[in-house]
Design a protein around this nucleic acid. Structure first.
Lengths: 110, 110
DNA sequence: TATTTATATTGCAATATTACGATATAAATT
DNA sequence: AATTTATATCGTAATATTGCAATATAAATA
């Protein structure tokens, strides 16, 4: 095969995987970090910041947007991108969940 | 092309991407959730839990272990897997960083 | 030591991702 | 209206991932 068996998992699991996958590339981590730093920017700023061509950056932005991690507003000829808080909270909740369990049990594994 | 330009990004960015990528598959999210629930288990338990063949589960476990999200201890003929806290803290720190910035600025994007 | 039990590795086909040149789109400016 | 500015989409080559059958490994047990 090669295709992920998406239908065998819950919507929640698939949604979390989509968000995590969106962050599973150093360029997209770099974009997120840059967005944190500058708060808001346009695609061209990122093209100047990263060693990637414009279509590649555009594609990465699309994936981050699709995963709900960023949002973009049209501003003249440009599109203004920034972090989308609900998306961040979604994945952060997953890690909080894990940490809560680890704190509660506080046991050395196997 | 097709290969990720890993060398153009920082070690930190690449490490975070590896962790996120490891979680970028519903089966691996499901494995993490199962591990949270049962605290510790062997590969065979996961094979019984998920709709995937043994080699596939073994492969997913390898990726999670490689990313530092889980660890495994040999226990007779079986290998006992559980969550690796430092790996969780690493990626959780990234989201904490984002959340801290969002809280501080509290501004509607563009 | 032969068998059982549990997991890992290999090999391979199907599919997905990455990157970018070329091109399209769309709003602003001249 | 032609040009500029900024981004998106298309097409495509290179590479990576997913999933599993077959097989290998390795410790425990009979």
């Amino acid at each position: 095969m090669g295709a992920t068996k998406t239908d065998h998992f819950t919507a929640e699991q698939n949604e979390l995987a989509v968000i995590a996958k969106a962050l599973g590339h150093p360029a997209r981590i770099a974009i997120m970090e840059y967005l944190i730093k500058v708060d808001t920017c346009i695609c061209g700023d990122i093209v100047n910041e990263l060693p990637l061509a414009q279509p590649t950056v555009s594609q990465h932005l699309k994936e981050l947007k699709n995963a709900g991690l960023i949002k973009g507003n049209i501003e003249g000829t440009a599109i203004c991108y920034c972090i989308n808080e609900p998306g961040i909270e979604k994945i952060r909740g997953f890690f909080q969940h894990i940490t809560d369990h680890l704190d509660k049990k506080r046991k050395e594994c196997c």
